[in-house]
């Protein structure tokens, strides 16, 4: 569509204008949608977080500046939520990234393509079911008389010990991590498998000719070249863990103690919907948003500087 004679030029501009109008027409529905359901709500949350607003209150919301934020920063309950969220996030995403990377490498060593595919499907299946179903299954496994205790006691050879999966404050945190790890491990393994498949084999061949053993190949070739994927997947896993809700919600509903697993999202839900303190819940939402924004920013920074080309 690049005319090189003058006679075509006028007509060309006309088409360009019409084209531009079509382009705008195609894009407008999405713009309206995102304005109404993404940008307006986040601005509204920012605004509401400055007010003492309750749902069923007859009093008009009163402006309190940063009052909600100050309240939260002084509130032990909120700090507990921050702690719960970060414990869950780091306790889940770090093992998840390390283990899924290891398994992606293991899978890449499986010769038979069909067998490898079957492994991938087996690992991925838990990611297919919904998180409430996952939590429901594990609630039964973590029953004092359930499979969880039976397995652990079998492996550690400690018959009759109750590990208090759902009752003990530390164990219940570990339990939520196990559920999440179980559900998403396959998903992350496949992310790494995809990342590994972009590394050209010629590099490995060259290294082998130069006398590198597989261990050296892994640390000197795979790891450096996979670093962008590792960074990306880590941040993604981290962002997902920060947003966790379903597992904790169902565990609390199922009778587990709330405080150890009262993550920020659960706290927002309780404060805003159950206790109807919208202003305070909005302030919490904004803090969560800022935390995630920082992580996303880190992601963009690192992934930009780490881009590799073969």
């Amino acid at each position: 569509m690049k005319p090189n004679s003058l006679t075509h030029k006028r007509k060309y501009i006309g088409i360009e204008r019409i084209q531009a109008r079509w382009g705008i027409a195609f894009v407008i529905p999405a713009i309206l949608f995102f304005s109404l359901f993404s940008f307006y709500p986040i601005l509204n949350a920012l605004y509401t977080s400055l007010f003492d607003k309750r749902v069923l209150s007859l009093l008009p919301p009163t402006f309190m500046g940063l009052g909600n934020y100050i309240y939260l920063f002084k509130s032990a309950d909120f700090w507990n939520s921050v702690r719960a969220t970060f414990v869950f996030t780091f306790g889940t995403f770090m093992p998840m990234v390390v283990v899924s990377l290891a398994f992606a490498v293991f899978l890449s060593l499986v010769k038979n393509k069909k067998v490898r595919g079957m492994f991938q499907i087996a690992y991925y299946t838990p990611a297919v079911i919904s998180s409430v179903v996952a939590a429901a299954i594990w609630l039964l496994i973590f029953d004092p008389r359930g499979l969880g205790n039976q397995w652990v006691n079998f492996i550690l050879n400690t018959p009759g010990v109750d590990n208090k999966w759902l009752a003990d404050a530390t164990m219940v945190q570990l339990s939520t991590m196990i559920v999440y790890f179980w559900k998403y491990i396959g998903y992350f393994i496949i992310l790494f498998v995809t990342g590994l498949s972009t590394i050209p084999s010629s590099i490995y061949e060259a290294a082998t000719i130069d006398g590198a053993n597989p261990w050296q190949s892994f640390w000197r070739i795979t790891m450096p070249l996979l670093k962008p994927t590792v960074v990306l997947v880590s941040i993604m896993a981290m962002l997902q863990c920060l947003k966790t809700f379903g597992t904790q919600y169902l565990f609390v509903q199922g009778g587990a103690p709330r405080a150890p697993i009262n993550v920020i999202t659960l706290n927002i839900y309780t404060t805003g919907i159950r206790n109807q303190r919208i202003g305070r819940a909005s302030a919490m939402s904004i803090i969560l948003f800022i935390i995630m924004l920082i992580f996303t920013w880190v992601q963009f920074r690192t992934s930009k500087s780490e881009e590799v080309e073969y």
Partner: peptide, 29 residues
């Protein structure tokens, strides 16, 4: 596939919404 003024801006704007976690906007929503 269409060239119009502000095309990149529109794209960036839509991409920016990916950074907004649903949990943060659920109450205003």
């Amino acid at each position: 596939k269409f060239k119009f003024k502000g095309r990149n801006f529109v794209f960036m704007l839509i991409m920016a919404t990916m950074m907004i976690p649903f949990e943060a906007i659920m109450i205003p929503l």
